[in-house]
Computed example of a mutant assay.
Amino acid sequence: MTPGSNIPLSAAGVAVDVAAPVRLDVSGLLLTAHGKVRSDADFVFYNQPAGPGVTYRSGGGASPDAITVDTAAVPADIERIVVTASPDEAGRTFQGVEPTATVRDAATGAVLATFTPPRLGTETALVVVEVYRRGGAWKVRAVGQGYANGLAGIATDFGVTVEEPPAAPQAAPPRAAAPAAPSAPAA
């Protein structure tokens, strides 16, 4: 596939795995017609591996992580499932990394499509593909949209509340030493 291209899905269940020469974190976001999640429960990833009709599967480092979509179980108000990826290593960009998404029939494992986004650079997260509903039929679209502000940037754009880690408390300024008590006169 090429960026922006789409194909109809012939399978009711598809698995999208994203492989690269570095370990990637793969996630899925269930989006309404407004392009937003209904709640944070629509963000499927390693710490929240299941949502309505969508599941996350870890590759355990030996194989790629995947998002599986059971189109028959996706709620009617969800129009698309966005599959994202980001390098597992903090601060790592996609410079020199060519991720490839493989869309498979979830039941048989047969490859339905593959997509490698064009050359990437300073992006730290990527919307790879989307599985979407159009006129009652399901399709997959190659996206390849990069983000320089990581997975938090993608999540925020799609309406997920991202809690920043609390800032380290600032150290209190050093206290001035109390003046020494006057010594008592000798008796």
Results as ranks from 00 to 15, higher is better:
2 T>H: 10
2 T>W: 09
4 G>I: 02
5 S>T: 12
5 S>I: 04
7 I>N: 07
7 I>L: 11
9 L>A: 09
10 S>M: 09
10 S>I: 06
12 A>Q: 10
13 G>N: 08
15 A>D: 10
15 A>W: 02
16 V>N: 01
17 D>G: 01
17 D>N: 14
17 D>H: 05
19 A>D: 13
20 A>F: 04
20 A>S: 14
26 V>G: 06
29 L>H: 07
32 T>D: 14
33 A>Y: 02
39 S>P: 06
40 D>S: 08
43 F>L: 09
45 F>D: 00
46 Y>P: 01
46 Y>F: 15
46 Y>A: 06
47 N>G: 13
47 N>E: 07
48 Q>G: 01
48 Q>N: 12
49 P>Y: 07
50 A>T: 11
52 P>S: 11
53 G>P: 08
53 G>Q: 07
63 S>K: 13
67 I>A: 00
69 V>W: 04
71 T>D: 05
73 A>N: 11
74 V>M: 03
77 D>R: 01
81 I>D: 02
82 V>W: 00
83 V>T: 06
86 S>N: 12
87 P>S: 14
87 P>Y: 11
89 E>M: 11
91 G>E: 12
91 G>S: 14
93 T>I: 12
94 F>P: 04
100 T>G: 04
102 T>A: 15
105 D>Q: 09
108 T>P: 08
108 T>L: 06
109 G>Y: 06
109 G>A: 03
111 V>H: 04
112 L>Y: 09
116 T>M: 05
117 P>I: 13
119 R>M: 07
125 A>Y: 04
127 V>E: 14
129 V>K: 02
131 V>K: 00
132 Y>F: 15
133 R>H: 04
136 G>T: 08
137 A>D: 14
138 W>K: 05
139 K>Y: 12
140 V>Q: 01
142 A>D: 00
146 G>R: 05
148 A>Y: 01
154 I>E: 00
157 D>T: 12
157 D>R: 10
158 F>K: 08
159 G>M: 05
162 V>Y: 03
163 E>I: 09
164 E>F: 05
165 P>G: 04
168 A>K: 12
168 A>M: 08
170 Q>S: 15
171 A>N: 05
174 P>Y: 08
178 A>P: 14
179 P>R: 15
183 S>N: 10
183 S>T: 12
184 A>N: 10
